[in-house]
Design a protein around this nucleic acid. Structure first.
Lengths: 202, 202
DNA sequence: TCCTAAGTGGACGACCATCTTCCGGTTAGT
DNA sequence: ACTAACCGGAAGATGGTCGTCCACTTAGGA
């Protein structure tokens, strides 16, 4: 493969990520090509069809997330700190928007990417373990689960019209709300804060 | 207008609301017709084109919201209670999803509905006054504004995959977080809760 | 430098989803 | 019983996206 071709391939995957993040999973190929500063023909030379491109992009993305989780596990002092750090990393740079877009992949395409689902479910499992450990240690409220963490993550980051730093603030507030406090400040005036039940359902 | 025609007209508007809420502003006419249990022809007999239907639906919707706000103002004991009540009413029955869908109306259509924008901005103004009053009285944190209220509302209610009662819980937690507490419990461990700045920008 | 395999852009035909029209058959209400 | 109003849904018109094709360009070895 020629050097310029390699370069273009990378730019295309990069562009696909950006465009899918902001226009959803159905973003037209031409938009992706244009963002990569490349003709449509070039895209189709590298990827047999649209699905192949999406698959390549999703594969790269899920690995990136997986690595981030590994880093958080290794570098943070404890499970709760790791969860926090991972969540904030995910909220960065519109990664949440991409996740949300990928969430409505056609089932057919999803099935065609066994590795994607493998890495993804492994990652979710590890995050789940982290949450459980944090709760075990008493660092985190017991009535929220991975499902809540993931949901808030996608909620706060999948809207292009929500300024990024604002999303980060909301997330910090929510994370803060999930933290267990020993001073009793966690008691809410109308008990609403205690009704985050039904967690753990993935 | 014959009685059955009148009945069908209402069902069509109702169907449009439901379908737009769950499929977005670009939902196909046939889906709306089918939901109303009516042929496409019937829809076009009542509304000259797609835009006319959307406009009728949006007009009805904005008035409904306006009325709800009026009710909240009248029936609740104070401004903060009114805000809470209005927010929770809005979160009900997928109204947030509809609001989100209407948020990306084509500008052209938006301009063609002067009444819609009039009622809407009047409503936002009144809500703003309510928030200001609540803050004046010391019932609500001073560092959040209507913008935050509206954003959270749409955030939590515009996702079909977020179970409704879960969205309501999150909202309650957030509303609770906006409430001013005199016992000092509002002080958060890392100060994140104090960084909700930039409010009031509509 | 020259040569050529590899690469490139973008016009274009095929295809599909949706809008809107139209008309033969049905029905509410007098 | 009569008819003006109404109904459903087939079908033409339209617009947008996919993927192909080919004339032109370029990287990189001889």
């Amino acid at each position: 493969m020629r050097a310029d071709a390699r370069r273009n391939r990378d730019r295309i995957v990069e562009a696909a990520r950006a465009v899918v993040a902001e226009r959803g999973i159905d973003a037209p190929m031409e938009l992706i090509a244009r963002r990569a500063e490349v003709g449509v023909g070039t895209v189709y030379r590298r990827f047999p069809d649209r699905n192949a491109l999406i698959a390549a992009m999703a594969g790269q993305y899920v690995h990136e997330i997986d690595d981030a989780l590994t880093r958080a596990e290794a570098q943070e002092p404890g499970p709760w700190a790791a969860v926090r750090s991972f969540v904030m990393w995910s909220a960065d740079q519109g990664r949440g928007a991409l996740a949300a877009a990928l969430a409505d992949l056609p089932q057919e395409l999803f099935d065609a990417m066994p590795e994607f689902s493998r890495v993804k479910s492994g990652m979710v499992g590890r995050l789940d373990a982290l949450v459980a450990a944090a709760q075990e240690r008493g660092d985190m409220r017991a009535d929220v689960g991975v499902a809540d963490v993931m949901r808030l993550l996608s909620l706060f980051t999948c809207h292009a019209d929500l300024p990024q730093e604002r999303a980060a603030h909301y997330l910090l507030v929510m994370l803060d709300g999930m933290e267990k406090r020993s001073d009793g400040a966690g008691k809410r005036s109308d008990g609403a804060g205690d009704r985050l039940d039904g967690a753990r359902e993935i």
